[in-house]
Nucleic acid binder design. Sequence first.
DNA 1: GGCAAAAACCGCCAAG
DNA 2: ACCTTGGCGGTTTTTG
Length: 313
Amino acid sequence: MHEVAVVAYDRAPGFELAIPGEVLDSDVLDGRYHLRLVAGERGVLRTAAGWRLPADAPVEALACAHTVIVAGWRDELDAPGPELTAVLRAAHSRGARIVSLCTGAFVLAAAGLLDGRRATTHWRHADTLARRYPRITVDPSVLYIDDGDILTSAGTVAGIDLCLHLVRRDLGATLANTVARRLVVAPHRDGGQAQYVEHPVPEQVNGTLGTLLGWMEEHYRQPVTVDALARRVHLSRRQFIRRFTAQTGTSPYAWLLHRRVLQARHLLESTDLPIETIAAHAGFGSAETLRLHFRRHVGSSPSAYRTAFTPAD
DNA sequence: GGCAAAAACCGCCAAG
DNA sequence: ACCTTGGCGGTTTTTG
């Protein structure tokens, strides 16, 4: 049983606070995570909308959590209390995994947990974070950053991506996809939040490119060249790459590779096909190529991944 | 939108 | 038997 503590604090944004519950406590996960709302501050706590927050446990409960999630923060100008930062540091040094969603990164930063690390936050606050904490390498162009024991995510909805990533890491890609499907969100939103920087009005990958992404989703298992993609949308290769990266945050080819690795993960978990075959089914030309990109994205070799996620469940 | 340089990738093979 | 890693030149992709 994996204990997850979600930190409750006064004037918390309700949306961010709800994300861990929606993703990690999804009924398709069968209670593999045990979530608790833990008070990070004294007194009566309310959400930004004024709803009363009934914390399950006092600050000390962070001591027994495997994962601690700070979902957002009320105000970048408002420093978190010393009690909260101290207990976060303690939890981390005890080996807990610390996660921030959106502006929750400011709390982690105040606790000194991000010093010397890469981190991200909502793009509107990235500058402030970087300026106030020069020892943090802030990358505002990604949806989330997995730095092993510390994970940070970008604005609002990216918190869902990060929580799905946790599920993927802990329980495998197949289950993560099931959760995503249940929530009716994209199981794999690749790339950064660059699109939101230029077009703060969220979502909706614009018309023709959106259609193209659908096509790619159907055809990534076979060889696809960037030139062919550009031709499909009647753009020069150069212009196509420009638009694609502006909208999705990754280059076309990188998108394909990422998608193929995800499919390979799924096949490794759900079949016992040899690596060579899986490579072919996922759209890689050879097993070596799969291995290279698999290690780059997942951090382990395909067969090591398979043994880690095989029997039992 | 096209060009050229830089970077990344591919598949093969050899070795562990 | 099967998997992983690393090197190598020839391509393809990405960048400015």
